[in-house]
Amino acid sequence: MPNTLNPLELIARRWQPSAAFVRRAALAAVVMAVIIVVTGGAVRLSQSGLGCSTWPKCTPDSLTPTAAMGINGLIEFGNRMLTYVLCAVIGLFIIAARARHPRRRALTRLGWAQFWIVMSNAIIGGITVLTGLNPYIVSAHFLASTALLTVAVVTWKRAGEGDEEPRDLVARPVRQLAWLLVAASGALTALGTVVTGAGPHAGDARKVHRIAVDWQEITQLHVDFVYIVVGLTVALWFTLRAVKAPAAPRRAVLELFVCLAAQGVIGYVQYFTGLPAFVVGLHMLGSALVWICVLRVAMSLRDRGPLPEGEPAAPAAPDAHEVSGPQPAAASSR
């Protein structure tokens, strides 16, 4: 009796994607993760957080928005639909990583981790609606999106390198400085969610509960962490120059500094112009790009060797009837 193959194994026997295709699929997941962050911000900034009044349906009687719900219903429902696009992109990556030879289990595990984060965040999003945009749940929703972005960036990096044991490119104190930068940037992102949860953009035109902190004070703390992150970035760049680190880490730090400078300009513009929605949206995009740059800096300080060389897919096993069927007669001797 023939062995039963799962669908991913069947695809792997018939399709051999290139390493470049796997990397592009991983990059597409990163792009979609950023889009989810930005469109989620657009839902809040357009006061469409309760555009769909319930979950998983849009209304108690309709899966999709009705005409009476107006543009807010369309925006909220459109953001929900993007989740399916994101799942499709992640699914493509999982299939491509599974079909690639030699098989790299670490990549498929990272792909599945992205999928389950998306599923978990969909539930958090539903709870957000059902609790009337509770600011703490909204913050958790954004942080889960950041977790997805983190895993997507790590997957993208791993798709372009080998599976050897990590080899450090710099001394341990330099790596510790880089991880301190990651920790400070993570704290900066978390504080940003508190600023948003206490600020004027509640996500809906009706009165919505806000985080009970002084908005000016929490904003100042957020700015203080910006200075810490910028200071650590500058310190890391000079340290990498002093130890004559490879060019790739130094370039990654410069890219981070440029991104931080642009984000700082946007932050001050939104503060001094009264937090216009469009500028706040740019700031959310900037926060995602800064986090990507920070992760790239940390991962640039080690090397895992070259990508494994591709191997031909294993030949498909013969069917049972081909094995047990009649055999050709031996040729007669002349």
Rank of each mutant, 00 (worst) to 15 (best):
R14I: 02
A19V: 04
A26Y: 02
M32C: 01
V37H: 02
G41R: 00
Q47C: 06
Q47Y: 12
S48N: 05
S48L: 07
P56V: 04
C58V: 12
P60C: 02
D61L: 08
D61V: 09
S62Y: 07
T66W: 00
A67I: 09
M69Q: 13
G70K: 01
E76L: 05
L82Y: 01
Y84S: 06
V85D: 07
H101Y: 07
R105S: 10
R105N: 11
G111C: 07
S120W: 13
S120T: 15
I123Y: 10
I123K: 12
I123G: 05
I124T: 10
G126N: 08
I127C: 02
S145T: 10
T150L: 14
V151K: 09
A152T: 14
W156K: 10
A159K: 07
E164Y: 05
R167N: 14
D168G: 11
V174Y: 13
V174Q: 08
A183M: 15
G186A: 15
A187D: 00
L188N: 11
G192D: 06
G192F: 07
G192S: 07
A198F: 02
R206Q: 12
K207Q: 15
H209T: 10
R210K: 10
W215Y: 11
E217H: 10
H222W: 04
Y227F: 15
V230K: 08
V230P: 09
T233G: 15
L240M: 06
A245C: 12
P249S: 03
R250Q: 13
R250C: 06
R251P: 00
F257H: 11
C259K: 12
G264S: 08
G264Y: 04
G274M: 01
A277P: 01
A277M: 07
H283W: 05
W291N: 07
R296H: 14
L301V: 05
D303K: 09
G310P: 05
A313L: 11
A317R: 02
P318L: 03
P318E: 03
H321C: 09
E322S: 12
E322V: 06
E322R: 09
S324F: 15
P326E: 05
P328I: 07
A330E: 14
